[in-house]
Simulated scan of single mutants.
Amino acid sequence: MRTRTFIAGLISLPINAVLFGAGAIVVLSIPALAEHAKFLLPVVVVAGFAAAAPIAWMLAPRLRARQHYSDAHDNI
């Protein structure tokens, strides 16, 4: 398994949780949307699940460990 795929898989669930939480807060805090929460909350769940994978795929390379060595640190 590629490292990027592994990292994306690990962070997709927390990203999904954040997206769902933000969507649920929006739906439940706006009175006009709260009336239709019975239908909108499942839409938020599906949209969050669908959006989590691409967002995790974009973030995964930024989470890889990088080693930056310079000559200045070697003399210490």
Rank of each mutant, 00 (worst) to 15 (best):
N16D: 05
H73V: 15
L63I: 14
R62I: 05
S29P: 01
I30D: 09
V26Y: 15
K38L: 09
S29A: 09
A22H: 06
L28G: 02
A60V: 06
H73E: 13
F6H: 03
F20P: 00
D74C: 15
W57K: 10
R4H: 08
P42R: 11
W57D: 06
H36C: 01
T5F: 15
R2N: 15
V46G: 00
K38F: 11
A37K: 02
F49Y: 10
A65P: 03
V46H: 00
G48M: 01
A22R: 08
G23E: 08
R2I: 07
I11Q: 00
L10C: 02
G21C: 09
N75D: 12
R2P: 13
F39G: 04
A56H: 06
F39Y: 12
R4F: 08
L10M: 02
L63S: 11
A47E: 05
A72Q: 01
R62E: 09
V27T: 08
L10E: 00
A65L: 12
G23W: 03
L63K: 13
F20Y: 13
A51M: 07
R2F: 13
V27Y: 03
V27S: 01
E35W: 05
L59D: 08
L13T: 06
R66Y: 09
L59E: 10
D74H: 15
A24N: 08
H73G: 13
I30L: 14
L10S: 02
L59G: 07
D71G: 06
A72F: 02
E35A: 11
T3A: 13
G23F: 00
I25T: 08
H36R: 06
A60L: 07
L41M: 10
I15P: 01
L59K: 06
A60K: 01
V43T: 05
R62P: 00
A72D: 03
L28Q: 07
P42T: 11
G21A: 13
H68N: 07
Q67T: 12
P14S: 05
N16P: 00
T5I: 13
I25Q: 03
N75Y: 13
I25V: 05
A34E: 13
R64E: 14
A24H: 08
A17V: 09
A17W: 03
V46Y: 04
L10F: 04
M1F: 14
A22G: 13
L63E: 14
V45C: 09
K38Q: 08
A56E: 05
F6D: 09
D71N: 11
A52G: 03
L13G: 01
V44C: 02
P31N: 10
A72E: 04
T5V: 15
A8N: 00
A53I: 12
F20H: 03
I15V: 15
S12R: 07
A22P: 02
R4S: 06
V27D: 04
P42V: 11
R64V: 14
L10Q: 01
I15C: 04
A17C: 04
G23V: 06
A34T: 11
A72T: 02
G21D: 07
L19W: 00
A17D: 03
